[in-house]
Structures are given as structure tokens and as C-alpha cells.
Computed example of a mutant assay.
Amino acid sequence: MNENNQFHISFFRPTTERARKNRNKVVWLLAIWAIGVFGFQFLLRALEEPTPEPVLTEFNEVWDNVKSDNANKHELQTFAKSALQVTGKVFIKPEHRNALDNGITWATMKLADSAQKIAISQALIDFEKAAKDLEVLSDENYQTARNNLAALARVPLGLKSNELLTNFLPLELDSKMAGSFTDENKKIVAKAMPLYTIHNQSVLTDTKFLGFPFHYFYTSVFLLILFIVICWFYSFTTDKINKKLKISE
């Protein structure tokens, strides 16, 4: 090597055999890593198909009658339960939750008889007051008001006392929305339901491997193992190159 160039280091234009071998090895390992990460993502995209949840199928079967206000008792119950299932998801846009809450509250009051309407309305007012004054979730007044509202509101919807939907039903009722299901909120609900109930699925997401969906195992376990193997391989081959070139540090 030129003596004047001995301190010049360039990854892309190596000046020594060791640097050249190291450059080539890094390029190959980066290519393997990129194929492992991005190749799998491209494969997921190529194989995935939009698949609706059963709740969306149930919703679609009754929606035309619900939005035209011609739904029977069973159809209103089906609509309210499907909307409740969506509101139970973790991430819901505020405007979507507001529209779904309007539909749930409207359907509940529409299904209730005159005596139930009076009882539910009063229980809802009591619950909203308790929620407004709430400081801790364990507050006795809040829990009592919530349980009372759930016990009353679940009956028109045909929910059982031990159902998960019954537990968060009070949180989706709003006294200001009981009178009508607005046309604007109907449009929002029609757009929101598919957004939260259609998921891309493929053989890579449906196949189980060691008890996990394959795509989860691949991204959270296999890619981590691959990274460790790449690091080990880099260190192992670097030592071999140094020994071959009689380089000691």
C-alpha cells in the first residue's frame, strides 16, 4: 500500500485486501437482512386479501332497514350489538365513536318500552352526573350508577348480564343522542364499520407456528434471531480473515 495512503479509509473504495473482503461481506449481510425484512413485507402484501369480521356481515344484513328506520326488533338489536363491538376496539376516531354512540343510544331507546325509556333515561342522567364528578374509577357512586344503567339498558338490546358488551354499554350511551339517529351520523357509521372490521389476511397470517401466527413469529422472533446470527457471522468471518492475512490486534 502506498505509504502516503495508509491512513485513507473508504468503505466504497477499499485500498487493502482486508478492507475489500470486509466491504463485500457487509454488503452481502445487508442484502440478506433487507430481503429478510422487506421481502417478507412485500410477500405479505402480495398474498393478503381483505377479509371482513362476522360482525360486519351481520351489520350489512340489517343496515339498509336500520338507516331507513324500517328495522324490526331483531335487526335493531343486531345493529346495536355490532356497533358496540366496534366501540370496544382500542383505537377509534372520536367522530366515529360519536356516530356509533348515536346509533347505539337511539336503537336502545327505540327498543325500550315506555316504562323502560323512563327508567333508562333517569339512570343515564345519574350515570353522566356521576361520571362528571368522578375522581377515581373505584368511586362507589360511579360504579353503582354504571351498574344500574347497564342492568336497565341491556334488556332492550337482548344482552345478558355477564356479556362483555354489557360491561361497556353505559360508556357508549349519551342522553343528548337518544332522540334521533342523524343522517350525518348514519353516513359516518356506514364508512366506519368496514374500516374497523375488515383486515388483510393470508396464509402467512392464518398459519400457526409454535403456537403463534406465522407473521408474528417471523417478525418478532425469527428476525431477531437472524440479526444475532448476522452479528455472529460477521465477527466469526472477520477473525478468519485476520488470521488468513496474519493481522493481529
Rank of each mutant, 00 (worst) to 15 (best):
R18Q: 06
L149N: 03
L43R: 13
I198E: 06
F222V: 10
T87N: 02
V229I: 07
L173E: 06
S138Y: 11
P14G: 15
L157K: 11
L210H: 02
R20V: 11
N70Y: 14
W232P: 06
N60W: 08
D64P: 05
D183M: 03
A178T: 14
D101P: 03
A80Q: 02
S10Y: 12
G211W: 08
A115T: 03
E140K: 01
T197A: 08
R45C: 13
T87V: 07
Y196N: 11
L223I: 07
S121P: 05
T166A: 14
A31Y: 12
Q85A: 13
W106D: 02
I92P: 06
N24E: 11
E249M: 15
T166F: 09
T207K: 02
L210F: 05
I198W: 02
H74Y: 14
I247D: 05
L171C: 14
E249H: 12
S82W: 03
K117L: 02
T51A: 03
D64I: 10
R45S: 15
M177E: 14
R18Y: 11
G179S: 14
K243T: 01
S10T: 12
S235D: 11
F217E: 01
Y216M: 05
K110D: 01
L152H: 09
R146F: 09
F11R: 13
Q77P: 04
A34V: 11
L149V: 01
L44H: 15
N5Y: 08
A119K: 04
A123Q: 00
H215P: 03
L56N: 08
E135I: 08
R18L: 11
E17H: 12
I228N: 06
G39R: 08
A153W: 10
H215G: 05
I120K: 00
S10C: 13
K160G: 12
G179D: 13
A150P: 05
L224H: 15
N147H: 03
A71G: 04
L76A: 00
A99E: 02
W106S: 06
T205F: 00
H8R: 12
A123E: 00
K246H: 14
S175R: 07
P156Q: 09
A83N: 04
V189P: 01
T197R: 03
A46K: 13
V136G: 02
S202L: 07
T108R: 00
E61T: 07
K186N: 05
V66T: 03
F168A: 14
H8E: 15
L134C: 02
L165E: 07
N167T: 13
F59K: 01
R97N: 05
N72W: 01
A145M: 03
D139E: 06
Q85G: 10
E3Y: 13
F12P: 03
I241A: 02
T57L: 09
H199Y: 09
A19M: 03
L29M: 13
N141G: 06
A178Q: 15
P213A: 00
N185S: 10
K67W: 08
F168W: 11
L164I: 15
I225D: 12
